[in-house]
Design a protein around this nucleic acid. Sequence first.
DNA 1: TTGTTGGTTCGCCATATGGTGAACTATAGA
DNA 2: TCTATAGTTCACCATATGGCGAACCAACAA
Lengths: 114, 114
Amino acid sequence: MANQQTALDTVFHALADPTRRAVVSRLLTGAAPVKRLSEPFEMGLPAFLKHLSVLEASGLIHTEKQGRVRTCRVDAARLAAAEGWLAEQRAVWQGRTDRLAAFVESLNPPEEKS
Amino acid sequence: MANQQTALDTVFHALADPTRRAVVSRLLTGAAPVKRLSEPFEMGLPAFLKHLSVLEASGLIHTEKQGRVRTCRVDAARLAAAEGWLAEQRAVWQGRTDRLAAFVESLNPPEEKS
DNA sequence: TTGTTGGTTCGCCATATGGTGAACTATAGA
DNA sequence: TCTATAGTTCACCATATGGCGAACCAACAA
């Protein structure tokens, strides 16, 4: 699972940037070539390509070159991995607060609210 | 919402490190003082404190000092914010694939599978 | 009062990140 | 064939990150 941990590292790191989150959001509505993706942003292409490579290294997107255009598409499974970790954590926390609530109730039996 | 975007930046960045994720996980089972939290890790206290301050800056944890011990506790709402963004994205993607499936079906009417 | 313990601060270091501009390659189209 | 376009690579820069050791402060305990 050390591998998985590294995967979470790179996925969360990739998402920790508004440009990259915007790209992911955009790609979720459909694949797109690099230039089209880069248009909404102020930065130059080299900087934008770095963002793309961070995203690709994280597995959040895959790219494929055909002729002179490179098409990018998102890998929703990776997003799900991040969401999964968070859901796990929430489950732990909810379990704890549920037990806490039960404990408090056991100390202080709930009154019937009329 | 620019503020929220910044909040997502810091939350995802905070989660992009195994040490910090472990601390969050640990704190979800209950509050703890700094030293106890730091014990499982190899690094020195100064380095560990930096991780804590990253977590605190992101709002994922809050700390409070009483006497000479500083107690840390998690803020589950921030975790939920990150999970919320991911859930939103998944909804977009699912909406798209649902529409895609509908479109494909409209082209190629489904056969009744016996 | 004198240790010991929990935490903090400081200066330092190596590396990673996020951006730039300029030069370059390779394909598509006229 | 010529040219415009999509993308890539390179060298460079400023700042952020993640770690260290050493010195330091403050509070509890003996």
